[in-house]
Simulated assay, not measured.
Amino acid sequence: MVASGLARWSLAAADPGISPNEDGLPGLPVVRSIVGALLTWGLVACVAGLVVSVIVWALAHQQGNYQYASGGKSGVVVSAGGALLIGAANAIVGFFAGLGSGV
């Protein structure tokens, strides 16, 4: 009975032979173009957020308003982190896709 359970497990874990297919659906170049544009918009938004946050941080610190200065610092960190993640999006997805294909 244990041997038949192991045999079923090995059949369930067999590779079905399916891999990503770039020709399977029409419109893939358009989707890639749209995602590339979203990456660009995201980076532009991060730059705008960084500029606004630095201005708020500087003005609030100059006026002694430490609550707004703290908010400006947080905005700088969030904007920089967002730009880091957007810039590394392809590498992150590629890393985890490679990791997942090795499982």
Rank of each mutant, 00 (worst) to 15 (best):
M1Y: 14
M1Q: 15
V2D: 13
S4K: 15
S4H: 14
A7S: 14
A7V: 12
A7P: 08
R8I: 12
R8W: 11
W9Y: 14
W9A: 12
W9E: 13
S10F: 07
S10C: 09
L11V: 10
A12V: 10
A12G: 10
A13K: 15
A13Y: 08
A13W: 08
D15W: 06
D15C: 07
P16Y: 04
G17I: 05
I18H: 07
I18Y: 06
S19Q: 07
N21M: 01
D23M: 05
D23R: 12
D23Q: 10
D23H: 06
G24N: 12
G24M: 11
G24I: 05
L25C: 04
L25G: 08
P26W: 06
P26G: 06
G27L: 03
P29Y: 04
V30M: 14
V30N: 13
V31G: 10
I34E: 12
V35C: 09
A37M: 11
L38R: 14
L38I: 11
L39W: 09
L39A: 09
L39G: 03
T40Q: 13
T40Y: 11
T40C: 12
T40R: 15
G42M: 06
G42V: 03
A45I: 03
A45Y: 00
A45N: 05
V47W: 05
V47M: 00
V47G: 01
A48Q: 10
L50R: 01
S53F: 04
S53L: 09
V54P: 04
V54M: 01
V54W: 00
I55D: 01
I55A: 04
V56R: 01
W57Y: 02
L59S: 04
L59R: 12
A60D: 06
Q62F: 03
Q63W: 10
Q63C: 00
G64D: 06
N65H: 02
N65R: 05
Q67A: 05
Q67H: 11
Y68K: 01
Y68V: 01
A69R: 00
G75S: 06
G75L: 07
G75V: 03
V77M: 07
V78Y: 02
V78C: 05
V78G: 02
A80D: 06
A80I: 06
A80W: 09
L84C: 02
L84A: 08
I86T: 07
G87A: 03
G87V: 02
A88H: 15
A88R: 15
A89C: 06
A91H: 14
A91G: 11
A91C: 08
A91P: 11
A91Q: 15
V93T: 14
V93K: 13
G94H: 11
G94E: 07
F95H: 13
F96N: 13
G98A: 01
G98V: 07
L99G: 12
G100L: 07
S101E: 14
S101N: 14
G102C: 06
V103W: 10
V103G: 09
